[in-house]
Design a protein around this nucleic acid. Structure first.
Lengths: 164, 164
DNA sequence: CCGACTGCTTGCAGTATGCAAGTGGTCTGC
DNA sequence: GCAGACCACTTGCATACTGCAAGCAGTCGG
C-alpha cells in the first residue's frame, strides 16, 4: 500500500489497514467460507486472487493482528489461519457492505442470498455468528445457537445452482 | 483500479466500487466535513490527497452514481458536489468503520470524538443524520431533529484542541 | 527415493499513485 | 477592459503496486 499522509481519524485508520481491493476479500473467505489455508484461499476464491497478492495479504493481516497462523495438527507444513477477535468484530462492517452492495449494485441473484440472510437477521444474527466464530477460531466455548450452517448452506446451494 | 475477476458477491461488488485508499475518504469529507467543492476537498483534507487522484475519484464516484455535480449558483465555474441517496446509505458502513478503527487501531484521541459520538448514538443517530444529509444534498424537507451540528462541533473542537 | 502436495517466491510487464508544475476558463478591483 | 487572483482540473515523470506464469523448497505417503 502506498505511503500516505496519516491522520488520526478512525475511518482513515481503518482504510489504511483494510482499504484495498483484497484484504477484506481474504477476511470474508476465512469468515464466511471457512477457508483456513493458503491453498484453499487461492483455489476456491470466487474472484481468483493472484498468488503473490494472497501471500502478501496474509503476511500483512497477520502482522497487523487480524489473523494468526499455526501449523496444522496433521501435516507439519500445512498452515492454518485463524481470525482474531479484532477480525471477528468486522462482521457488522462486512454485513453492511453486503447489504449496501445488494441494494446499490447489480449482484447476481444467486450469490446475494447470504447477504440477504445477514441483512434480514440484523444485529442479533451477527452477534450469534460472531459467537460461533469465536468458538471456531479462538477456542471459545461452543455457543447455544448455531447460524453459520444456514448461512453456508444457502451460499453453497446458490453456488451449485449457479454452476449448472 | 485494476481489472480483476468479477463475482456476484455483494461484498465484492462493494469493494470493486469503494475498495481503495481514497474513495471513502472523499465520501467521508463530503458527508461529515461538508466539503462540497474540489478546492475544499483538496485543501482541507486531513490526509493531503493528491490533486490528480482527487480529480479521478470525483469523476469515478460521479460516474458510478455516488455523487452528482452542478455549478454553484454564485460563480458559474465553481462546481458543487452532492451525495446521492446511494452514498447517504453508506452512513452505517462509515459509522462501523469509525467504531472499528477507534477500537482496533490507535487513533489520536482528539480526532476520534466524532466516531465515539456516532458509535454511542447507534442506528437512531445514523438515521437522523441520514435524514439531514437528504435535506442538505437531495433537497428533501428539513428534518425535525438536527444532529450534524453536534457532530461537527465536536470535531472542530477536537481539531482546534489538536493544533494548539 | 519418487512423485505429489504444500506454502510461498521470483521475473516481468502493465497499471496506479504521488508530486510538482502547468492550463484554460471566470470573477474581482480598478 | 485589463491585470491579477481564483477555480477546477491536467500533464509529465519517477516510483510503487498488481496480475500472470513459472519456479522452488520442505513434507508426506508409498
Amino acid at each position: 500500500m502506498a505511503q500516505t499522509g496519516r491522520s488520526g481519524c478512525p475511518i482513515n485508520l481503518t482504510l489504511e489497514q483494510l482499504g484495498d481491493r483484497w484484504s477484506l476479500v481474504v477476511i470474508r473467505d476465512v469468515m464466511f467460507g471457512n477457508r483456513r489455508s493458503y491453498g484453499e484461499l487461492l483455489a476456491q476464491s470466487e474472484e481468483r486472487i493472484a498468488s503473490n497478492i494472497l501471500a502478501d495479504r496474509l503476511k500483512r493481516l497477520t502482522a497487523s493482528g487480524l489473523l494468526t497462523r499455526r501449523a496444522a495438527p496433521t501435516h507439519r507444513q500445512k498452515v492454518i489461519y485463524s481470525l482474531t477477535e479484532a477480525a471477528i468484530q468486522l462482521v457488522p462492517l462486512l454485513a453492511h457492505m453486503g447489504a449496501w452492495g445488494r441494494r446499490h449494485t447489480r449482484p447476481s441473484k444467486e450469490l446475494s442470498v447470504r447477504a440477504e440472510l445477514l441483512e434480514k437477521g440484523g444485529a442479533p444474527l451477527w452477534n450469534a455468528f460472531m459467537e460461533e466464530l469465536r468458538h471456531l477460531h479462538l477456542g471459545a466455548p461452543r455457543p447455544a445457537r448455531s447460524v453459520s450452517g444456514e448461512l453456508q448452506a444457502a451460499y453453497e446451494k446458490a453456488l451449485a445452482k449457479r454452476s449448472r
